[in-house]
Nucleic acid binder design. Structure first.
Lengths: 159, 159
DNA sequence: TCTTGACCCTGTAGCGGCTACAGGCCCTAG
DNA sequence: CTAGGGCCTGTAGCCGCTACAGGGTCAAGA
């Protein structure tokens, strides 16, 4: 029953580096097209699916949101994109990345200053805590509203 | 019925700069203690609540997760923290921020290179799209698993 | 005194981008 | 014929909020 280039979802997952559950999720939200099914209902993918999924993965790694990726794919699918359109999306995204870097650098400076106040000895009063309890408007004012700020804990959980 | 220092949730919100809904959320998840209630069931806050909420707000702005903030507050509440403990949390967090900056700088470089390839003229083939379709492992390998990557769309929605 | 409107209450559902089940079916090797 | 791996659907959870719906309360003005 195996057709040429017919990949199971597991094979597609391995070749693309995208989680099986994520592939199904992409299908559900319309980022990936629904593939053919085998007689028993298994998804069967072709080379085009692999190509598209790689596109999605790479775009995600570059920080594009799924919504932006949908936009890019719409352009590509319609063969109706101009280089200028794509360039604009790219530059928008680049600006966004630079804004985030600037925000994080401000954070870095404040945190480093706080840590520097800290002797490291035991002490009942701590400069960091004092600084955090300081109710004055903090030195770090993000350039926009701050993004969800993806939590150092996600990393801490990881270790 | 107004007791001295008795703040309504709306007043607390204004003075702390934290959204009303967010204050109630903090109470629900145990970051803020449940305050007294007026006869009619309204929350009544005191100066200590304002202080604590400011602490939370400031810590959030510095990128601490609510889980980390809970940790800090536990130390503070127990009066059992050593400066060294706090310092360690701070330095962990600082390292995390620096990691994110490094990741974003890699992104910035790749995106800038892609955009530079782009003439901006109309063209049926586009360097950016080509680069995204490139299935080779991308030049940008985040140092850990990449965080949720809080989407440029949240910004685009904003405008 | 009554009415208006601002405030407050609880509870639930939604966002993005997955991940992790539960409870099943299918397929192949031993 | 059985064990195990894969696959299927559907739902619930993660974080840190935000936005309702559908009520109760309170103070100022007519």
């Amino acid at each position: 029953m195996k057709q040429k280039d017919g990949l199971s979802i597991g094979e597609l997952s391995k070749q693309s580096g995208v989680n099986i559950e994520t592939i199904r999720y992409y299908e559900k939200i319309g980022v990936m097209p629904a593939p053919d099914r085998s007689a028993s209902g298994y998804r069967v993918y072709g080379a085009d699916h692999l190509k598209r999924l790689s596109f999605v993965r790479r775009s995600r790694q570059l920080g594009f949101s799924l919504d932006e990726i949908r936009g890019l794919l719409r352009l590509v699918d319609g063969h109706a994109y101009t280089c200028a359109q794509v360039r604009e999306l790219t530059l928008d995204h680049l600006a966004e990345i630079r804004r985030k870097i600037a925000d994080l650098k401000r954070l870095e400076r404040v945190m480093a200053e706080m840590a520097a106040q800290c002797s490291g000895d035991w002490a009942p009063e701590c400069a960091v805590i004092d600084a955090l309890f300081d109710t004055r408007p903090p030195a770090v004012e993000p350039s926009g509203r701050q993004p969800p700020m993806p939590t150092a804990t996600s990393v801490m959980r990881r270790r």
